[in-house]
């Protein structure tokens, strides 16, 4: 009995009389287009290059008919990597949308303010100093929470003042990155690949266990995000009005920040602190939908698309060395961050 009614630009997904959830039509269109693009990028990821499985073979290969070499490429090499990329990109996009909504500022993003770097440091400590003692995601979560506590305390005004947030975030980012570098050097000496994986993030050599980790995190967190989505929308109108309308701003906030930290930590524990997906995905989602609101679903989808595309570039790059995907997102996202900084500064919001 699910149907959509569309009397206005806003339709409703209704199930009988008990459920009626408003959905803007443009959001549905954006979601469908993004999913199609993700599928296209995924097909390219699996079929391009010397080891690629030709597109014509894909349907058969994916339904269990892969022979030795193709089975290896799909089951070991590119398959898990792709599934991890989709899940991680979605987690980062959603994490960014949550944090940017709470701080009401695009710069209040987990990767800008040191959350991801903190998670990276925590992951490095657990993986390299204490291998087997604690699961890596626990280390990432502890690192992310510690980084956010440090930012929250050192701004003196919580997460609200964007200028202070960024300055404190840069400080925490630097501390966390330096700490990660120290840990990696101390344990691994000069393995450059290990270092970049923990500092910039990488999707090289991901296994199905990584895929299970990130998708399990999404499975738990996404329903919780859905529970607070309505309150986040009201929260956009300011704390006072949110309180007046009965959308208790404080608890909404605490939940959004907590879920954002868990998503970021989950992403970092499987792929390292990949930069700027969390910053850019919600901004792109906002512009293509052209609507108010926390843009949770489109941000997750755009995040997945961005990371799959970046990893496709990383795998098919004509460069002689295989750079990790984090370097690509860092380069592109860094340029976008510069643009945002200048814009917000001109508007006098820093």
């Amino acid at each position: 009995m699910t149907r959509t009614r569309a009397a206005s630009p806003r339709g409703f997904v209704t199930i009988g009389r008990a459920v009626a959830i408003p959905v803007a039509r443009v959001s549905v269109v954006v979601a469908i287009v993004t999913v199609v693009l993700i599928v296209a990028a995924a097909v390219a990821t699996l079929s391009l290059g010397r080891l690629g499985v030709p597109v014509t073979d894909l349907p058969r290969a994916l339904t269990g008919g892969a022979d030795g070499a193709q089975a290896f490429v799909l089951g070991r090499l590119r398959g898990p990597r792709l599934v991890v990329a989709v899940g991680t990109g979605a987690a980062l996009g959603l994490s960014g949308a949550l944090f940017q909504t709470v701080t009401r500022n695009p710069l209040g993003s987990p990767d800008v303010i040191g959350l991801a770097a903190g998670a990276g440091a925590g992951a490095a400590v657990v993986a390299l100093y204490l291998p087997g003692v604690l699961p890596v995601p626990v280390g990432a979560l502890a690192g992310a929470a510690a980084a956010m506590a440090l930012v929250y305390v050192s701004t003196g005004t919580g997460f609200r003042n964007p200028g202070r947030l960024i300055v404190a975030g840069i400080g925490v980012f630097s501390i966390a990155t330096a700490f990660t570098q120290y840990v990696v050097y101390a344990v691994e000496r000069d393995k450059a690949a290990v270092l970049t994986a923990y500092v910039n993030g990488s999707l090289a050599a991901r296994s199905w266990s990584h895929a299970v980790t990130i998708w399990a995190v999404l499975l738990v967190v996404v329903p919780l995000v859905a529970l607070i989505a309505g309150r986040l929308e009201i929260g956009e109108m300011g704390d006072e009005l949110a309180g007046v309308l009965g959308a208790g701003p404080r608890s909404t906030w605490a939940w959004a920040v907590t879920l954002s930290i868990v998503l970021s930590a989950g992403a970092v524990s499987v792929a390292g602190p990949i930069a700027f997906i969390a910053l850019t995905a919600p901004q792109i989602a906002k512009r293509v939908t052209g609507r108010p609101g926390p843009h949770l679903t489109p941000s997750a989808l755009v995040g997945a698309l961005l990371l799959v595309l970046a990893d496709l570039a990383a795998q098919q790059s004509p460069l002689p060395v295989n750079l990790p995907v984090g370097i690509y997102t860092l380069a592109l996202g860094g340029a976008y961050l510069g643009h945002l900084l200048i814009r917000e500064w001109r508007k006098g919001r820093l």
Binding site: L227, G230, M237, G238, L241, V244, L245, G290, R291, P292
Partner: peptide, 30 residues
Amino acid sequence: PQTPVAPDGITVRDLVRRGRYPHHTLLRQW
């Protein structure tokens, strides 16, 4: 309030609709 702030890109109807929030439940948002 004296100086409320409207979210970017919101239409009049969507803004007015937000006044209905207290009458909604988690599953029945209309």
